[in-house]
Structure formats: C-alpha cells, structure tokens
Design a protein around this nucleic acid. Structure first.
Lengths: 236, 236
DNA sequence: ATAAAGTATTATGTAGTACAAATAGTGTCG
DNA sequence: CGACACTATTTGTACTACATAATACTTTAT
C-alpha cells in the first residue's frame, strides 16, 4: 500500500508471508503449521532460513513451537498487537470498521496527552522539527508530500514529550493515519483541510500551553474520525 | 526479580544475555558486535543458535546487521520500547528515577482512559473477571498474593475495553506496577492500602459510569506516584 | 598524481547434513 | 487396569560449505 517494500533477505520474506497469513486469518489460532522440513520445502527455502523466521514470529507472539508437537498459531491475546509489522499485516487487506474504530480510540487517548506533554517539555530543537514538518505540510503540492509531512508532524510531536515509550506508539499513530488516508471522504479533493488544526496544535506547543494543545489535538482526532467514510457496503 | 525465569533453549539464553547487555548500556548504540563466528564461540553456542537470537534482537529494533559491516547496536529511537522483554531488561537493574517517571506518565495516560472505556463496554463476563481479581486482592495474605491479584485486576480492566491494542499495553502497566512494588514506601507495611481505590474503579465499571471510573483511576495513579520513595542516594 | 575501474577480502546470508533432546503415543508388564 | 518403559517424531543445536554483498585495496588510464 504505502510501502512497496521489496523485502531483501529470504527469511524476511518468510516472516512477512507467514505473518500475513496468520494475522489475516488464513491460519487461525490453534492451527498447527507443517513441520519445519515440509514447510521449508514448500516455501522453497532452507530449514535454516525458515527457523530464523519462526523465531521472530515467536517473538511477536504469533506462534509457539514445542518439540514433537510442532508450531501452532497462538491465541490473539498473546500477539504483540503494537508491533509495527503486526499492525501493517492487519491493514494489508482492507481493515474492518471495527479495527479502524480501535485505531481512532488509540489516537484519542494518546495524542491529546502527548500534545499536552509536548507543550510542557519541548526543547527549541524539538519545536523546530515540528515547525519544519508543518511548513512541509503547508508547502505540499500533492497527497504524497502531504502524507509524509503529516506523519513527520505527529512523530515530531511525540518526540517532544521526551518519553520514548510514547514515541514507540508512533507505529499505532502511523497505521491509523495511513488507514485514514485510504478511508477519508475528502483526502482526494482538498487534502490540506486539516492544516488549521495542526496550526493550533503547533502554536499551543510553541507557547507552552498544555491544555490548549490537548484540546486542539483532541479536536483534530474527533474531526478526522468524522471524516472517515463509513462504507456500509461490505463486499470487496 | 519477579520472574526467576529459567530460560530453557539456548538461543533464548543468547537473546536475553545480549538483550540485557544492550538495554543496560554495556553495549552502546553504534557499537559493533564481534562477527558471528567469534561471538558464537565466545558464548559457547553454535553460529546457528546465535543467528536465531540475532534475528529476534533485530526484530526488537536493538541491532541491525549488514554484510561485511557486521551487526551494530541501533540508536534507542529504533528500539521497540513497548516490547515486554525490552521493558524487563530495562528494569532488570534498578531503574532510574527518570524511567520510573516515564512509566507513571504512561499509566496516567492509559489507565484512566481504559477505565472509562471499560465502564462503557464491559460485558458481564469481563466484569466478573475484575470482581474475581478484586476479591483475590481483598483476600490476599501476603505481598506475593497481592501483587498477582493486583496485576490481574489491571489486566482484566484492559480486557474490558474490548480493544486489543490497549490490552497489549499491559506490558507497560505490568512493568510500572512491578517497579512500584519495589520502590513504594509502604508496600511492606500495609500492602493493601490501595484496596479502596480499586473498589471505586470496580464500582464505577460495574455501574457503567465512565467518567467516575476515569476519575477514580486517575486518582489511583496519582496516589501511587506519590508513594514512590525518591531515593536521592544514587549509589548502589 | 588523481580518479575511475576493477579485484580481493571478509562478514553475513543460505543450504544441507547429522545428531541431540524432548515428548506424545504405544505397547508391555505387573 | 494402571504404571512404566519404549519408540517414533519433531524441534533444537552443531557444523560444513558455499553464495552474496560491501568494504578496502590495487591497478590503470588520463
């Protein structure tokens, strides 16, 4: 979708192929995978490369392997849902309304709080980074430029919080925004319509007004939620 | 500390040993690791096992390997800070005040919002799980029982939100609470003192009062923050 | 002498074989 | 019928060999 991402190494290909199959539901929790030798042969890679991929999928909580029993897909409870890959695989096919709703809820929780924290703790350098991102948004001439600058804006804001745990949640924000660009009712026409929202957030952070930043950010998220077209037609 | 965790497989041992070294700062961002053959020999494992571990560490964003150049520790920006292992490694040695503050901030952002969402969307079964956890807290006779029940309470509340992205943040809450139990000024004496706070949250969720739940949860976090003893003495 | 091109070197990436260890399932003995 | 030992199977680990990519060096042409 957004990332063409020609995966270089073999085991990375295996990670993404199996990861996609699991997260998409082709392989369901409880399902057993073929034994390594077979699976490796079937995917045209060596058992070595396959195993390296399996270890990574285990680390992401998607599978679990035991001797004799083999590898099984784990219950979704155990998945690292915040993992960037897992989120990406989940959005690889058209995401469900249900999931979009959950992404928006995460934004509603994280971003206003992050905006407030940013207004409190930002350094001049960090502020400059947001300003640069905002300038790029204002200067954008097409949707691609806008998207990139928009993501940079939100990431820069998270960095302003000086809390790397919040920064790590950018993978969620990124996924939410990317999904929004696909589902939004108006991006194509006037993709810059949310620029004033961003301006208010930027100004509040610049002036060190936490509560103003929180409110402005909350409004931006609510507004973007209302701009997601609810596609009642479920068919592909 | 809390988890004795006798790591079974060899590559898991390698993952934890290298992960700990990196997160603790023994190996700094930019540092190059010895080449695989050497490192494997030095850790008394085969290159196979070592590589499986390296792939997992790569997936966690801690290292990056390229041909000829070898593996290097990545900048902390790229670390999956929300990964349960990374959080655990970070708290393996005594966590810094700075980091404790960041954990508390995460709780302040997540838990009140989660409490509100739980009050809105909980099912009877989910409520029963919180009630069970609360009962276990009330019945606890020692710190260990209390700790276990307390974690179960907070996890059950996250499940009530019906948002698996929020549930995945339990690794952060868990780390924060575990750290709190170590640093709290009063756990040893009267470890049950926060029971009333939990009762208020439980009641609000039971009665489907989102804002009440939010406030009660916010108070609990603020209260626990004030109960962390600030150990000015930095020496071990 | 400098810069471009090509070659050598070296570390990771991949394949394949062999065996160790664990465990579900089976069979046997009391 | 139950407990125990045995077997078969699958993952776990080790080792070897070679492919591939990227740096460093060397050669050559201007």
């Amino acid at each position: 979708m957004v990332k063409p991402m020609v995966v270089r190494s073999l085991h990375n290909q295996v990670i993404h192929e199996l990861g996609r199959q699991i997260v998409s539901g082709e392989l369901k929790p409880g399902d057993g995978l073929p034994r390594e030798e077979l699976l490796a042969e079937r995917m045209n890679v060596s058992r070595t490369a396959l195993r390296e991929a399996m270890k990574v999928l285990s680390a992401k909580g998607l599978i679990q392997s035991r001797q004799k029993t083999g590898a099984h897909v784990r219950e979704t409870i155990y998945w690292n849902q915040l993992d960037a890959d897992v989120l990406a695989w989940r959005c690889a096919s058209m995401p469900t309304d249900d999931f979009v709703e959950k992404l928006v809820e995460m934004r509603e929780i994280i971003e206003p709080a992050a905006g407030a924290a940013a207004a409190r703790r930002r350094t001049p350098e960090q502020l400059a980074r947001i300003e640069a991102a905002y300038a790029a948004m204002a200067a954008a001439t097409d949707l691609e430029e806008w998207t990139e600058a928009d993501l940079a804006f939100h990431e820069a804001m998270l960095h302003c919080t000086n809390n790397e745990l919040l920064v790590s949640l950018f993978s969620v924000i990124e996924t939410a925004l990317a999904t929004y660009f696909v589902l939004s009712a108006r991006t194509a026409a006037d993709f810059k319509y949310s620029l004033p929202h961003h301006k208010k957030v930027l100004d509040a952070i610049c002036r060190r007004q936490p509560e103003v930043a929180r409110q402005a950010m909350a409004k931006m998220v609510v507004d973007s939620r209302s701009n997601i077209r609810r596609h009642a037609k479920k068919k592909a």
